[in-house]
Computed example of a mutant assay.
Amino acid sequence: MQRLYKALLLSGFLGLASSPTLAQTAFGIQTEFDITYGSGTIAPEGVPLERDLLMDVYTPSPENVDYTRTTSAEPGPFPAVIYVHGGAHHRGGRRQEPFRLEAAVHSRPEDYARLLTPMGYVVFVIEYRLATENPEPAVKPGEAGLLPDVDAYITPEVFEATKRARGAMGLLQLEDTPEDRLFLWKAGMAGAEDARKALDFVIANADRFNIDPERIAMGGHSAGGGITLNVGVGMQAPLAAIFPLSGPDILYDHAPLIASGDFPPTLLMYSQFDEHTQLGDLPDIISLLRAGRADYTLAWVPGFAHFYPHQAVSLGDDGTRAAVGDRIIRFLEQNLRN
């Protein structure tokens, strides 16, 4: 694993110190890239250090009202969406090439941002610390309501799925040891901590971004879906809605969460041939939401494996048929609009 950290120093930190960049306004969207929303501890070579955490912001533009739902010369405050990328906690980012697998082209984080922003949402696409950086979360297993046993989260199925992802990336394989299972647990926890930092930053800077801090949703795919569940349900963060797509179960003990019952409206989505880990975790997620009296909806994407584009057709538990992106838009309209 030490060789992995050395490779990281050469490839993973380039550009982290870049300053915010304001891109051109077009098609109802104004973009601002590389905004620092916080920092997190990583330990390449076993030596702890802090690195900046960055986000891109997509804002509806009043200069291009023909392309947006916005008609006012001075719009806002807008509802907001924080989008969290996937990648098995090992890869992915704010801007990336389309990922192709099993004849499917997976929608990128910026695709979701460009879908939602013209509809009148400020979208924050965030990065977070990855396993390849050897992150050090602020908490340990069993603290702050977390499951005390690492193996309760890093199950054999999760471990094998991660090994497949690492193999596809050409990374050194892990061994089924307590040390390597803790390594994976730390990556999951660090991602959740970082997404919560992003939410806190957005709320604290609501005026700067012209958003309503009481109308913020979070969503993401795969690892991003798990992070969304950890923040919205596990941490009970102040989110108006969440839409985890193909996400695994949370790092938190279910029982105290059920007792509180303070869950945001939730749109769950999985594909017909999704990862065994995700489909295996789904009954426990449903049980948690039901026991906590959550307002939730479940939708399926037929014919796809774990990766699917936002244009793919989804089937809702209410009998509706809609594209993944359209279903998300409808869900946000129901929960973020006054």
Rank of each mutant, 00 (worst) to 15 (best):
L4A: 13
S11C: 11
P20K: 03
T21M: 12
A23G: 12
A23V: 10
F27G: 14
I29T: 13
I29A: 04
T31H: 03
D34N: 15
D34E: 15
G38V: 12
I42L: 03
E50N: 15
D56A: 10
T59C: 03
P60K: 03
E63F: 08
N64A: 10
Y67M: 10
T70R: 10
S72E: 13
P77A: 02
P79G: 05
P79E: 02
A80E: 06
R95L: 09
P98Q: 13
F99K: 07
S107Y: 10
R108H: 04
R114C: 07
L115V: 00
L115P: 06
L115Q: 07
T117W: 01
V122C: 08
F124G: 05
A131Q: 14
T132G: 07
E133Y: 02
N134W: 05
K140L: 11
E143D: 13
E143A: 14
A144F: 05
L146C: 07
L146T: 06
D151Y: 05
E157F: 10
A168E: 15
L172G: 14
D180S: 00
L184S: 01
A195R: 06
L199D: 02
D207L: 04
I211P: 05
E214K: 12
A217K: 08
A217T: 04
M218D: 09
G220Y: 07
H221K: 11
S222C: 10
G225W: 13
G225A: 08
V233S: 05
G234Q: 11
P238V: 05
L239W: 14
A240L: 01
L245D: 08
S246K: 11
G247C: 12
D249W: 09
Y252W: 15
P256I: 02
I258V: 15
A259W: 02
L268R: 05
M269Y: 03
Q272C: 02
E275M: 12
E275V: 14
R290M: 09
A291Y: 00
G292F: 02
G292R: 01
D295K: 07
Y296H: 13
Y296I: 02
T297R: 13
A299H: 03
F304E: 13
A305V: 06
F307S: 06
Y308F: 15
S314C: 15
G325Q: 08
I329A: 15
R330V: 08
F331L: 10
N335P: 05
R337W: 12
R337F: 09
